[in-house]
Nucleic acid binder design. Sequence first.
DNA 1: CTTGACTCGGTACCATAGTATCAGGTGTAG
DNA 2: CTACACCTGATACTATGGTACCGAGTCAAG
Lengths: 147, 147
Amino acid sequence: MTSQRTIGWLAKSAGVHVQTVRYYERQQLLSPVGRRPSGYRVYDHEAVARLRFIRNAKALGFTLREIGELLSLRVNGRARCGDVQRKAEAKLHGVEAKLTDLQALARALRGLIRMCQAGQPIDRCQILRQMEREQPASQQSQKRRTS
Amino acid sequence: MTSQRTIGWLAKSAGVHVQTVRYYERQQLLSPVGRRPSGYRVYDHEAVARLRFIRNAKALGFTLREIGELLSLRVNGRARCGDVQRKAEAKLHGVEAKLTDLQALARALRGLIRMCQAGQPIDRCQILRQMEREQPASQQSQKRRTS
DNA sequence: CTTGACTCGGTACCATAGTATCAGGTGTAG
DNA sequence: CTACACCTGATACTATGGTACCGAGTCAAG
């Protein structure tokens, strides 16, 4: 009953796999409140909230590393809301840069499709040509991961 | 000399590592025009354009698999324009779906940032509170990383 | 007390996009 | 002719975010 707060209970409550909970533990994002004598992990409702937090932050595009930072901000009493805000803003800027790039690409693809409809041969395709050009690395849309 | 079109020349010309060129070859994105008797790969200027294409498409968020499709689209282009058009349209739909996801993400981030009254102690941070809420994964799938 | 579900740690594996290192062969400048 | 840079395939390793499987131990219902 009430003592059923095992890893399986937690996983089910938060809608993730048991292995994922253990994976998050290895990544220092989450730990059990204790262990039974048998070694079984014991959790509380806090853990469910924390796991939900992780899931939502992940859906917002934060990496597990970033989520870890967010979580430790929460623990660290001196941290201010502004710290969190800055992280969210950095993430937003990355997303906006990506949006700009993708919008340009969508426009280019629509152009290609129009050209195809006009019966133009593909070797005149301007986007494909454009993509062969040496591009001035200008507004780099984040290398790999936004930190 | 003109006969220096080895993998090293290509890699330097396109600004990637030699191993990356070989990796792309394994991924069927690029192949040498031939081999020297010694086995050395030989490339031409086309290869530089192709590598630049790959780099630029990658910067736009295409996976190597998708880039392969784009490249074969270019090669098959002369044959059947209808085929090409369908592929381009599929690609466009993919880009538009990505755009929708990213726009939702940006909206969510902006909403969170607005809620934050900087200077609040961390335990009153609305961003963090919001992220603890049960958010039933909602509509957007988020299958691929958006970073 | 047995049965079956659950849990343990450990390890291996998936995809993605490379990077690093290896022994050994090649190419070329001095 | 000798250095030394470059090339070869093969294999292993990086990071990210998990998933799958293993034998062995545990827990609770019947």
